[in-house]
């Protein structure tokens, strides 16, 4: 009985936490910024630190993943004599799964953790209180541009990742393993569908973007403002963000590609 009550209490705490996080993000976005020019400026700054600074890691990992995928795919497909379909394998796995998922995981590690740490540090150094005391809403000033920048960047990065992966795969399979580039492209184009593959991948990336950025800014804003608390919040962002991505990926994949 006692454990049941504890479970119930835990459940309500959990519901409350979800509610707080929901209200938090709603307030950040829907309290419209006062000055348009200023908010564009803030957004550009965040797009820079969230997007541009993640660009290189995304291109490099995308290229390598594409190269590895071609090597692996080639060795298996060659057994069936259909090594020409390596382009098809590459494109489908990148667009549907690896592009959005790996980008999101890298994003959680690279941009998510730095968002949490930055906001946490702003809280610890009383910058957030300071905004508030100046009559400026820290949600719209600090949180909103970071959240929006994250939601814009991740889908773009995921596209860059997939494109880099396909180019990497092209280099390996056509340039090195000797697949004919005509069949590489034509088999790829035959099997890849714009709606089901590219757009679905993009939707996945968008959902992941909302999840990760939300977790990151919320953890930063709610962290215990000490060096230990910031460290913990940063870890939580990466762990929760990655888990959320993988769980959401399963749900989305089932919804998008599940009806065979």
């Amino acid at each position: 009985m006692k454990s049941l009550i504890a479970l119930g209490a835990w459940f309500f705490d959990w519901l409350e936490a979800i509610g707080r996080a929901g209200i938090f993000i709603a307030q950040s976005i829907f309290r419209v910024p006062v000055r348009f020019g200023e908010s564009v400026n803030l957004l550009v700054r965040q797009l820079y630190s969230v997007g541009v600074l993640s660009f290189v890691i995304i291109v490099v990992s995308g290229t390598f993943i594409g190269m590895v995928l071609s090597l692996q795919g080639y060795s298996v497909l060659a057994k069936f004599g259909s090594e020409d379909s390596v382009g098809q394998l590459l494109a489908l796995s990148l667009l549907r799964e690896l592009g959005p998922v790996v980008t999101a995981l890298l994003f959680a590690g690279r941009a998510g953790s730095s968002l949490t740490a930055e906001i946490g540090l702003m809280k610890a150094t009383e910058q957030l209180s300071s905004y508030e005391m100046m009559g400026v809403d820290p949600l719209r000033r600090v949180i909103a541009p970071r959240f929006i920048a994250g939601v814009i960047c991740l889908p773009l990065l995921s596209m860059v990742f997939s494109a880099a992966g396909i180019i990497g795969g092209l280099l390996v399979s056509v340039g090195w393993l000797g697949v004919s580039d005509g069949s590489f492209w034509s088999l790829m184009q035959q099997s890849v569908n714009f709606d089901t593959d590219i757009l679905n991948g993009l939707i996945k990336a968008l959902v992941f973007a909302v999840a990760i950025t939300w977790i990151a800014v919320y953890q930063g804003y709610e962290c215990v403002p000490t060096s230990e608390g910031i460290g913990k919040a940063t870890t939580r962002t990466v762990v929760l963000g990655s888990l959320a991505v993988l769980a959401l990926d399963f749900v989305l994949t089932a919804a998008m590609f599940g009806d065979f």
């Binding site: 702003m122 150094t125 209180s129 300071s130 005391m133």
Partner: peptide, 11 residues
């Protein structure tokens, strides 16, 4: 308000 740590905006 003058905060203890100064609370200057670091960016």
């Amino acid at each position: 308000m003058l905060f203890q740590s100064g609370a200057l905006f670091s960016d």
